[in-house]
Design a protein around this nucleic acid. Structure first.
Lengths: 129, 129
DNA sequence: ATAGATGCAAAAGATTTGCATATCC
DNA sequence: GGATATGCAAATCTTTTGCATCTAT
């Protein structure tokens, strides 16, 4: 963060802490609510600006979810099994994709620093209805 | 579609055709504009309702993109290399994930019918700035 | 014939922007 | 000290909802 030439401020700390503390993807509204516990005066706009910055820096990934985009730290739970009907998620540990990253970097000149692997389908409950 | 007990209507055809015609993820506004070429009176609300239905049915996936959620047909380009700064995308052909799908179905009782694999990073141009 | 789908307009939400003030380095 | 970041409020955009009408099956 500082390495990239951006300032480390209390607002940014609070927002990062909110994402760190909870192990699941959060909507901007949830991030605001959580971060305000630590920093009561925090403004909505700052949350949006900071989330965009964290995405830019590759520290956070936006994910579509029923009800809008949610954000989660890159390191946590990037491999999921998601029910497209009710939205339940299972976190997976397997990752057959990591090995491809280096190969892609070499081939396309990208600096690859994360990936997302999601399987979609219907959970047992939703298969019934 | 019909198999799942839903009606096949001109509005739905036009929306599906829009997604089929263009090979990239579209925002709801883009879907509306394209589908209106075929069906001028099409309403915005119908686009949202139909996109949600197509996601439910597993025919379309929502993806986060700079500027909001975009939708694309499941069959097309589910494996991508995305620049988190400018948003350029490369489609990939490799897929080390397919083999896991069956295993997950067995283990968790999910009916797995699609997956999304994305690598994030910086494209050569954005690495410079 | 009738449950389901549509289009419209309005309501509700979400995100962005402009700007004066406060703050990190 | 000076560029950066912040918080607020308003402006803008996106998405959802209620309802009367229409249409696939």
């Amino acid at each position: 963060m500082r390495a990239a030439g951006f300032r480390v401020t209390p607002a940014r700390r609070a927002i990062a802490a909110a994402l760190l503390g909870v192990g699941r993807p959060l909507s901007p509204a949830e991030v605001l609510a959580l971060a305000r516990r630590e920093r009561p005066g925090l403004g909505r706009a700052t949350v949006y600006r900071t989330l965009a910055l964290l995405v830019q820096l590759g520290l956070v990934v936006p994910r579509p979810a029923p009800g809008g985009i949610r954000y989660s730290l890159v390191s946590k739970g990037m491999h999921r099994l998601v029910c497209r009907s009710c939205g339940v998620e299972l976190l997976l540990t397997e990752c057959p994709a990591g090995s491809l990253a280096g190969e892609l970097a070499r081939r396309y000149g990208f600096q690859v620093d994360g990936h997302l692997l999601e399987f979609y389908g219907l959970c047992p409950d939703c298969q019934r209805s």
